[in-house]
Simulated assay, not measured.
Amino acid sequence: MSDNKHLTLDNRYDIQHSLDDGLSFKAIALNLGKDCSTISKEVKRHIIFEKKGAPYRPFNDCIHRFHCKHNASACQVCGSQH
Protein backbone atom coordinates (compact mmCIF):
# COMPACT_ATOMS: atom_id res chain seq x y z
CA MET A 1 0.00 0.00 0.00
CA SER A 2 0.93 3.62 -0.37
CA ASP A 3 2.90 5.61 2.21
CA ASN A 4 0.97 8.85 1.75
CA LYS A 5 -2.08 9.14 3.95
CA HIS A 6 -4.16 11.64 2.02
CA LEU A 7 -6.14 11.19 -1.15
CA THR A 8 -5.46 13.68 -3.90
CA LEU A 9 -8.14 15.31 -5.98
CA ASP A 10 -7.16 13.01 -8.86
CA ASN A 11 -7.66 10.00 -6.55
CA ARG A 12 -11.13 11.26 -5.69
CA TYR A 13 -11.99 11.67 -9.38
CA ASP A 14 -10.74 8.13 -10.01
CA ILE A 15 -12.94 6.84 -7.17
CA GLN A 16 -15.98 8.64 -8.56
CA HIS A 17 -15.48 7.35 -12.10
CA SER A 18 -14.71 3.84 -10.88
CA LEU A 19 -17.91 3.77 -8.83
CA ASP A 20 -19.83 4.99 -11.89
CA ASP A 21 -18.31 2.06 -13.81
CA GLY A 22 -19.53 -0.34 -11.10
CA LEU A 23 -16.17 -1.30 -9.61
CA SER A 24 -15.98 -2.54 -6.03
CA PHE A 25 -14.09 -0.77 -3.25
CA LYS A 26 -11.49 -3.53 -3.37
CA ALA A 27 -10.91 -3.10 -7.12
CA ILE A 28 -10.67 0.68 -6.75
CA ALA A 29 -8.22 0.30 -3.86
CA LEU A 30 -5.99 -1.99 -5.93
CA ASN A 31 -5.99 0.53 -8.80
CA LEU A 32 -5.03 3.40 -6.49
CA GLY A 33 -2.63 1.48 -4.26
CA LYS A 34 -4.71 2.20 -1.15
CA ASP A 35 -6.53 0.08 1.40
CA CYS A 36 -10.17 -0.73 0.59
CA SER A 37 -11.27 0.68 3.98
CA THR A 38 -9.76 4.03 2.93
CA ILE A 39 -11.95 4.01 -0.17
CA SER A 40 -15.09 3.04 1.74
CA LYS A 41 -14.49 5.71 4.40
CA GLU A 42 -13.96 8.35 1.70
CA VAL A 43 -17.19 7.40 -0.02
CA LYS A 44 -19.13 7.30 3.25
CA ARG A 45 -17.74 10.69 4.28
CA HIS A 46 -18.71 12.41 1.04
CA ILE A 47 -21.80 10.59 -0.22
CA ILE A 48 -24.78 12.72 -1.16
CA PHE A 49 -28.21 11.15 -1.36
CA GLU A 50 -30.61 12.58 -3.87
CA LYS A 51 -34.06 12.83 -2.33
CA LYS A 52 -36.68 12.05 -4.94
CA GLY A 53 -40.37 11.54 -4.46
CA ALA A 54 -43.04 10.26 -6.78
CA PRO A 55 -44.66 12.89 -9.00
CA TYR A 56 -46.85 15.21 -6.89
CA ARG A 57 -45.83 13.43 -3.67
CA PRO A 58 -43.16 14.60 -1.21
CA PHE A 59 -40.08 12.55 -0.43
CA ASN A 60 -40.51 10.33 2.62
CA ASP A 61 -37.47 8.58 4.07
CA CYS A 62 -39.12 7.45 7.31
CA ILE A 63 -38.23 3.85 8.14
CA HIS A 64 -41.86 3.28 9.16
CA ARG A 65 -43.35 4.66 5.91
CA PHE A 66 -44.66 1.34 4.58
CA HIS A 67 -46.71 0.37 7.62
CA CYS A 68 -47.38 3.75 9.29
CA LYS A 69 -51.03 4.69 9.84
CA HIS A 70 -50.34 8.45 10.21
CA ASN A 71 -51.27 9.76 6.79
CA ALA A 72 -51.05 13.56 6.40
CA SER A 73 -50.11 14.06 10.06
CA ALA A 74 -46.98 13.94 12.19
CA CYS A 75 -45.89 10.44 13.10
CA GLN A 76 -45.39 9.94 16.85
CA VAL A 77 -42.87 7.12 16.31
CA CYS A 78 -40.37 9.03 14.20
CA GLY A 79 -41.61 12.61 14.41
CA SER A 80 -41.68 13.10 10.64
CA GLN A 81 -44.43 14.83 8.76
CA HIS A 82 -46.20 12.61 6.19
Score class of each variant (00 low, 15 high):
residue 71 N to A: 13
residue 62 C to F: 02
residue 72 A to F: 15
residue 4 N to T: 11
residue 49 F to P: 02
residue 17 H to I: 03
residue 77 V to N: 09
residue 46 H to R: 13
residue 24 S to A: 06
residue 16 Q to Y: 11
residue 30 L to F: 10
residue 11 N to G: 06
residue 81 Q to Y: 09
residue 38 T to W: 02
residue 1 M to P: 13
residue 11 N to Y: 04
residue 20 D to T: 06
residue 73 S to I: 10
residue 39 I to Q: 00
residue 2 S to D: 13
residue 26 K to V: 15
residue 46 H to S: 13
residue 20 D to P: 00
residue 42 E to V: 05
residue 75 C to S: 03
residue 52 K to C: 08
residue 8 T to S: 14
residue 33 G to T: 07
residue 26 K to G: 14
residue 19 L to A: 03
residue 25 F to G: 08
residue 68 C to T: 01
residue 74 A to Y: 04
residue 47 I to V: 14
residue 7 L to M: 13
residue 27 A to M: 06
residue 24 S to L: 04
residue 29 A to K: 02
residue 80 S to K: 05
residue 80 S to Q: 05
residue 26 K to E: 15
residue 61 D to K: 00
residue 82 H to L: 07
residue 70 H to Q: 12
residue 4 N to L: 08
residue 58 P to L: 15
residue 46 H to T: 13
residue 37 S to C: 08
residue 16 Q to A: 13
residue 55 P to F: 05
residue 46 H to W: 07
residue 60 N to V: 05
residue 72 A to V: 15
residue 65 R to F: 09
residue 30 L to R: 13
residue 72 A to C: 13
residue 70 H to I: 00
residue 71 N to C: 10
residue 74 A to R: 09
residue 6 H to V: 06
residue 75 C to I: 02
residue 48 I to H: 09
residue 76 Q to T: 10
residue 44 K to N: 12
residue 25 F to R: 01
residue 25 F to N: 07
residue 10 D to M: 07
residue 10 D to S: 08
residue 6 H to Q: 13
residue 29 A to Q: 03
residue 68 C to F: 02
residue 63 I to N: 15
residue 42 E to I: 03
residue 28 I to P: 00
residue 29 A to I: 05
residue 50 E to L: 07
residue 34 K to Q: 06
residue 54 A to T: 04
residue 31 N to F: 08
residue 63 I to P: 15
residue 79 G to S: 04
residue 10 D to R: 08
residue 62 C to Q: 02
residue 34 K to L: 10
residue 72 A to T: 15
residue 41 K to T: 09
residue 55 P to L: 10
residue 19 L to M: 07
residue 6 H to S: 12
residue 6 H to C: 06
residue 63 I to S: 15
residue 23 L to E: 04
residue 80 S to I: 02
residue 65 R to M: 07
residue 40 S to H: 08
residue 32 L to S: 03
residue 18 S to V: 00
residue 56 Y to F: 13
residue 23 L to R: 04
residue 35 D to L: 08
residue 22 G to S: 08
residue 8 T to W: 00
residue 29 A to P: 03
residue 73 S to W: 03
residue 47 I to N: 13
residue 44 K to C: 12
residue 75 C to A: 04
residue 70 H to F: 10
residue 58 P to T: 12
residue 30 L to V: 11
residue 67 H to W: 11
residue 78 C to R: 00
residue 58 P to D: 15
residue 28 I to D: 00
residue 60 N to E: 08
residue 71 N to G: 09
residue 43 V to K: 05
residue 78 C to D: 01
residue 19 L to I: 12
residue 81 Q to L: 09
residue 27 A to Y: 00
residue 80 S to R: 05
residue 37 S to H: 09
residue 10 D to I: 07
residue 17 H to N: 12
residue 78 C to H: 03
residue 55 P to A: 02
residue 28 I to N: 01
residue 75 C to V: 03
residue 45 R to D: 15
residue 34 K to Y: 07
residue 75 C to F: 02
residue 20 D to I: 06
residue 64 H to I: 02
residue 41 K to C: 12
residue 42 E to P: 01
residue 77 V to L: 11
residue 71 N to R: 12
residue 33 G to K: 07
residue 10 D to L: 08
residue 34 K to W: 05
residue 57 R to Q: 09
residue 48 I to Q: 09
residue 13 Y to R: 12
residue 13 Y to M: 14
residue 18 S to H: 05
residue 58 P to V: 13
residue 55 P to N: 04
residue 57 R to H: 08
residue 50 E to F: 10
residue 57 R to M: 06
residue 37 S to E: 10
residue 32 L to A: 04
residue 64 H to G: 00
residue 12 R to V: 04
residue 30 L to K: 13
residue 73 S to T: 11
residue 48 I to P: 01
residue 69 K to Q: 15
residue 34 K to D: 03
